[in-house]
Write a protein that binds this DNA or RNA. Structure first.
Lengths: 215, 215
DNA sequence: CGCCATATTGAAATTCATCAAATGCGGTGG
DNA sequence: CCACCGCATTTGATGAATTTCAATATGGCG
């Protein structure tokens, strides 16, 4: 875990979500680590013992098969937390998608954080199970629609959505190839449901249609 | 939630796993509810406020799309716990697969169960995320192999595995149709990897091959 | 022993992946 | 500021895997 810890990081002025509940934010200020695009935050098999809050940037959590196939189980945007796991070691990889600042909360043996962690773990569990429905039972266009709706909601419901991740990341999150993801974007564009402002930002023209597609 | 609570249930003498940690089992004995095959334990939208331990039988947790497509996110066998969720209401359905006895632990507002629940939630989270890899990135035969390996492990690694659920349940768990599940079973049989003793029990002839397929 | 639901098998259709080529965006340097 | 370069993305053609539709077989239970 090669972190570029810095004390003079300029934090993003526009966090997508409020910070953690006051109970977590109180006490001594936690250090912020900076990770360049593509760098590893932790690896599968590594010792766990901390959890993380994204200050700015975006993080992908994933797992690999022996032959290199990758499944991204979650993206984490500014304000969101990740990294708490069962057992002493990480079961997944965490990487910065682009330049990312992360606040690290070390779990020291003494303090009991169950109260804070349980709601986060339960929320993560619900998200993962909902994602199972998408991967198990929805077709390509429904998957992309569900993904876009989710991103809209996590970015405050604005018409314009930023996609910090590549098409490959989106594919590996949705269980599709990049070609299929690209074709679906084109189809949604042709239907007048979305508009591609540039590769990384989408304008939602028909939120209701998208909503219905993603169920 | 139509439970047939009974005080004279004969518990299965062979729980697949030990009961909950002593911290949960201590205190007043929790009531056991009996659910016939196919009956609902709780429904999506229903008020939460308890968690459950399977005493005997098996439970499926699932979610539905508007058009009836179903994704089973988890099966729970004897000894396993389920039902804790984020928020005040259930996001999923829980049904008894066959005649099932469930020990109900009500969460009363006073007592704090974070310590007991957090490890369970984290374990569930890990399981769900691993299942995401299966649904997102593995083909039909790999999915069935992963499923069988999981069932073997949860039943103590014996050569003979009991499958309490139907092919339809397995399909809805693996994101496949019943026909595909059936064909894969046949293929595994023809390859000499498994032997179908009857519809609900499988003998594992080549555990290593299965293990490798399921990654 | 026979019935009926569940499961298996078969053939055709569909969706998505793969392989391949072209486009274009974003960043760099002149 | 503009042109160029490299890489991500898009688009196209083909193929493979899985679904769908349909028929048959099986076996669990009365």
């Amino acid at each position: 875990m090669q972190a570029y810890t810095s004390s003079r990081i300029s934090l993003s002025p526009h966090l997508a979500q409020p910070a953690l509940p006051a109970t977590l934010g109180s006490g001594p200020v936690q250090p912020i680590s900076f990770f360049p695009a593509g760098s590893e935050i932790y690896a599968q098999g590594e010792k766990a013992g901390a959890f993380y809050q994204v200050e700015f940037g975006a993080v992908r959590i994933y797992r690999l098969l022996a032959d290199g196939r990758r499944q991204i189980s979650a993206f984490h945007l500014a304000g969101e937390t990740f990294g708490f796991e069962a057992g002493a070691t990480h079961h997944f990889f965490a990487e910065a998608i682009n330049a990312t600042g992360v606040r690290v909360f070390r779990l020291n043996a003494g303090a009991d954080m169950s109260h804070q962690l349980l709601p986060l773990a339960l929320k993560g569990l619900t998200r993962a199970q909902e994602h199972l429905l998408v991967l198990g039972r929805q077709n390509a266009i429904e998957r992309v629609a569900a993904f876009l709706v989710d991103m809209v909601e996590r970015q405050g419901g604005l018409r314009q959505v930023e996609l910090p991740m590549s098409r490959m990341d989106i594919g590996d999150y949705l269980g599709l190839t990049i070609e299929t993801v690209s074709r679906v974007f084109t189809r949604l564009k042709d239907k007048g449901v979305i508009r591609l402002l540039n590769l990384r930002s989408v304008e939602i023209l028909k939120q209701d249609v998208l909503q219905t597609m993603g169920e």
